[in-house]
Design a protein around this nucleic acid. Structure first.
Lengths: 242, 242
DNA sequence: GTCAGGCTGTTACAATTGGTTACAAAGAGA
DNA sequence: TCTCTTTGTAACCAATTGTAACAGCCTGAC
C-alpha cells in the first residue's frame, strides 16, 4: 500500500492482548485503533473508516461472532477472527459466517501480521462496485447533486460544472458523510487506481472540488482535513431515492 | 415472486462449487436449488418459481451464455453470471447478453451474496417487464424517437433527420440510460466493428449527435462524458410499446 | 458510367482534465 | 522555539476529449 497505512481495529476485551497487538501493528507500519467490546467497536466504526478488523470471538456482552456476522452483512470491512481454541468448530463457524481469516490463540504476532497483509491484499483486489448508485439526488448545504444526471446545482438553481473526477469524489464523500476517508480509500472510491508512493492526486482533487463548492475555499467548512488521516465531509446529507 | 425467502437457482457443472455455494446461500437465509446443466436448469424452471439464477458460463453441452440469452429474452428471471476470466466481462453483462451482474471465478461467496442481494433489490423495485428491443417509441427530454420509423421529433413535433449511425448510437444510449458505456461497447452496439488502435469514430458520432439533440452542445446535458470511461445518457427515458 | 450529395471514418489540433512536482504554509512534537 | 511531517495549491505536463476539415465510400439520378 502506500504512505497511508491501512487502518486496523483491534477488538478484544483483554487489555494486555489488545494493547500489545496494537503496538506491534503500529511498529509494523500500520495504523491501529482498539475497542474493548463489540459495542465500542460499533461506535468506533460509525465515525472512522477502518480497513480491517481483528476480532476476538470470546467476549463478554455481545460476542465476536455476532459482531462479525453483522459486519459481514454490511459487507464492507474484512474481518480476521481470534479464536481461543484450535478447535475446528469455531473456525468453521467463523469462516462460514464470512470472516476472511482466523488465528488461534495464543498467536504469533508475526503470523497475524502476515495474515492481515494477505487479507488486505485480497480485499484490494475485489472488483469495484458495479452496483448503480441507490440515491438519486443528494442534497447538502444548499447544494443539490443529481447523481444520474451528474449535475450539481446551487441554492439558486444554477448548475456548476463538475469534471468526472470531481463528481466521483463528491459522490464518495456524500455517501459517507462524517466518516474519515483516507487518501487511499478516496483514490479507490474515485478511480480504483493503486496509489503511487507520493500520490498527491487526491489532495489536488479535493482542492479543486473545494474551490467549486466551498463558500470560502480558504477556510473549508464542508470538506475538512483530518491531519494525518484524510478528509471528512461534515455537512448533513439528505438523499432522496428519486 | 414468492413471499418467502428469495429462491436462487445455482447452475454449475462442478458439483463442489454448486453444492458449497447452495449451502452458503441457504445459511445466509436464501432458498437455493441446484442444476448441473443448462438442460436441467430449463426443466427445473418449468416447474418452480425462481427469483434469481446464478449461472456458470463455461459448461459442457449448452453453455451458460446460450441459456442466459434465452432467459433474458423471456425476461422474467434476473441472472448473475459466473465467468472464468475477468476479460470481456463488462461487454458480456448488460449488452449482448443482458445478464444483471457477473462475478469472476474464483469468487468470494460474500461478494456473490452481496451482488445477489443487490440484484434482487433492483428487481423488486423495477418490474422487469417488456423486452426493450420491442419498444416502439422512446421519449426523453422532450424528444420522441419512433424506432421503427427511425424518426426523431422534438417537443414541437418537428422532425430532426438522423443518419443511421446517429440513430443507432441514440438507440444504444436510450436502451441503457445511466449506464457508462465505453467507446468499445458503443462501437460494438452501433456497428459491430472491432475498434482500431486510435479509433475516434465514436467521439465523432457523439459530437454529431450532440449537435442535434443537445439544447446547448457546448455544455452537454443529455450525453455526458465520463473522463477515461466513455459516455452516459443522463435523462429519463420512457419507452412505450406503441 | 458519371456525378452530386450525404454519411462516416481518419487526421489534426485545440481545449480540458487530472496526475506530478515544487514550494509555501500549517500542524505536531520535542 | 525549532524541526520534521503533512497539507494546500500553483504550475506544469501528459493523456484524453471535442470538433473542424478532409477523404473515401456508397447511393441515387441522369
Amino acid at each position: 500500500m502506500s504512505e497511508h497505512e491501512p487502518h486496523i481495529l483491534v477488538v478484544d476485551d483483554h487489555r494486555d492482548i489488545r494493547e500489545q497487538l496494537a503496538r506491534y501493528l503500529r511498529k509494523s507500519g500500520l495504523r491501529a485503533s482498539v475497542a474493548d467490546s463489540a459495542q465500542q467497536a460499533r461506535k468506533f466504526l460509525k465515525s472512522a473508516a477502518v480497513d480491517l478488523i481483528v476480532l476476538d470471538i470470546m467476549m463478554p456482552g455481545e460476542d465476536g461472532l455476532s459482531l462479525c456476522r453483522s459486519l459481514v452483512e454490511t459487507g464492507t470491512v474484512p474481518v480476521i477472527l481470534l479464536t481461543a481454541m484450535a478447535e475446528d468448530t469455531d473456525r468453521i463457524v467463523g469462516l462460514e459466517i464470512g470472516a476472511d481469516d482466523y488465528v488461534t490463540k495464543p498467536f504469533n504476532p508475526r503470523e497475524l501480521l502476515a495474515r492481515i497483509r494477505a487479507v488486505l491484499r485480497r480485499a484490494a483486489h475485489v472488483p469495484r462496485d458495479r452496483d448503480p448508485v441507490d440515491a438519486e439526488t443528494l442534497a447538502f448545504a444548499g447544494w443539490t447533486l443529481d447523481v444520474p444526471k451528474r449535475l450539481l446545482s446551487g441554492a439558486d438553481g444554477v448548475a456548476v460544472p463538475l469534471s468526472s473526477g470531481e463528481f466521483q469524489l463528491l459522490v464518495a464523500f456524500l455517501k459517507r458523510p462524517r466518516m474519515v476517508l483516507s487518501r487511499d480509500q478516496l483514490l479507490d472510491l474515485t478511480s480504483g487506481r493503486t496509489p503511487g508512493v507520493f500520490d498527491r492526486s487526491i489532495d489536488n482533487q479535493v482542492s479543486r472540488l473545494r474551490r467549486k463548492i466551498e463558500p470560502d475555499p480558504k477556510t473549508p467548512e464542508l470538506i475538512k482535513t483530518v491531519w494525518g488521516g484524510g478528509y471528512t465531509f461534515t455537512a448533513d446529507v439528505q438523499d432522496t431515492a428519486s
